[in-house]
Every structure is written in structure tokens, then in C-alpha cells.
Amino acid sequence: MEVYSNENEQIDAVKQFFAQNGKALVIGVIIGIGALAGWRYWSSHEDGGSRQASASYQQVSTALDASKPATLDAAAKFARENSNTYGALASLDLAKRYVDANQLDKAAEQLQVGLKDTNDANLQAVMNMRLARIQLQQKKPDEVLKTLDSVKGDGWTAIVADVRGEALLSKGDTHGARDAWSKGIASDASPALKEMLQMKMNNLPG
């Protein structure tokens, strides 16, 4: 099982799969997370429509450039017209560009669009984590906590605990933050992530 060191590498792994398997229909996404996450896809034959969607996704994804609004509009149009995994991935790509441009409202909106385009719990978990981090930047801790409740799977425990602790701390709930980070440390997380959570706990008042 391949293990990836951060969420960006998870997304890169997804894109690489689609690039190398343009003639396959993804029927499962299984994330095995030891440190943070690992992606492995299983597939079967896809029809002509899926092949076209795959090619179109690769085209709009490659062309995305935050300095060129037309490419963002094209990606948004593709996401709206493709209620499938390709549409969800396009929304994920587009949301990143909006974050880079500090357009957090648009990024959050795009992720919410993408979440409706896939029924795969693992891909939804990635998107919900991205959404929670954006909501944290927007200083919306209650929305962060609600979004994190949608992330399922033991492999996400430490990552969810990290963001949950930050959200609770922003609400002034020091005890809640300490409890969240303690659960992350007790999980099967990477040593680096556990060390980071421990440092956050050590810096808490009291």
C-alpha cells in the first residue's frame, strides 16, 4: 500500500490514476491511511461517455490557471455538467485555485458542489477535510465541526482531531481542544503528526 505524506499527494495520486487509466471506470476508492493516507483504485471497463469525460477532465485540469479566468470558468462548467467522479475532481482542482487566490467563499462553494457529484465516502472525506480547513480560515468553527462529523474512517482520526482541536480552541474551548488532540495522539497516526499534536497540547494554557 502506498502511503502519502499529505493531502496534496493524495490528490496527485488520484490524478495520476486517471491519467494512466483513461480506459477504466473507477468503481471503488480505497484509502488506507497509516501515516496520513494512501490511495488505490480498482476499475473495470468504461463506456464511451466516461472516456470522453476523462479526456475532458484532463484537458480542463491541465489548463487551469488562476490568472486566466476563462480556464476557471471552463472548469466550473465541466463540474456543473458532470455529476460524477470527474466532476468532483474538477471541483477539487478549482477549489484549490480559489484558495490560492484567497477566494475562500468560492472555494468552499465549489467543494460543496463536488461533494454532491460523488457517492464515494473516501473521496468525500478528502473534500470534506479541505472544506473544514477553509471554514477554519473563514473563522466559522461551528461549520468546521459539522463538516468534520461527515468524515468517516479510523484512518482519518488524527487529521480530523487536528482540525477539530483548532476549531474548538478558536471558540475558547481549551478543554475540548486538549481532548481532541489527545485522541489524535492516541490514534494510529504518523510520529510527525503525533509530535505536532503534542506540541499544540503543550502550548495550551493551564
Rank of each mutant, 00 (worst) to 15 (best):
E2N: 05
V3H: 09
V3Y: 05
V3I: 10
Y4G: 01
I11E: 10
Q16M: 12
A24W: 02
L25G: 04
V26F: 01
G28W: 10
G32S: 15
G34I: 05
A35W: 05
L36A: 07
L36E: 13
A37S: 15
G38D: 13
Y41P: 12
S43H: 07
S43C: 03
E46R: 12
D47N: 15
G48A: 06
S50W: 02
R51M: 01
R51F: 04
A53S: 12
S54L: 09
A66S: 14
S67L: 02
K68G: 09
T71K: 04
D73E: 15
A74S: 13
A76G: 05
N82Y: 01
T85Y: 06
G87Q: 05
D93V: 04
K96D: 14
V99L: 00
D100C: 10
Q103S: 14
L104T: 07
D105H: 11
A108N: 09
E109I: 07
L111T: 13
Q112K: 15
G114W: 03
D120I: 14
N122A: 15
N122D: 15
V126G: 10
M127H: 00
N128I: 13
R130V: 05
R133K: 15
R133T: 14
I134L: 10
I134K: 07
Q135W: 04
Q137T: 09
K139T: 14
D142Q: 15
K152I: 08
K152E: 15
G153K: 06
G155K: 02
G155C: 03
A158D: 14
I159V: 07
E166M: 04
A167E: 11
A167T: 13
K171W: 11
G172F: 00
D173S: 00
T174S: 01
H175C: 05
G176Y: 01
A180H: 11
W181M: 09
A186N: 14
A189R: 03
P191D: 04
A192L: 02
K194N: 05
M196F: 00
K200Y: 09
L204P: 02
P205L: 09
G206I: 04
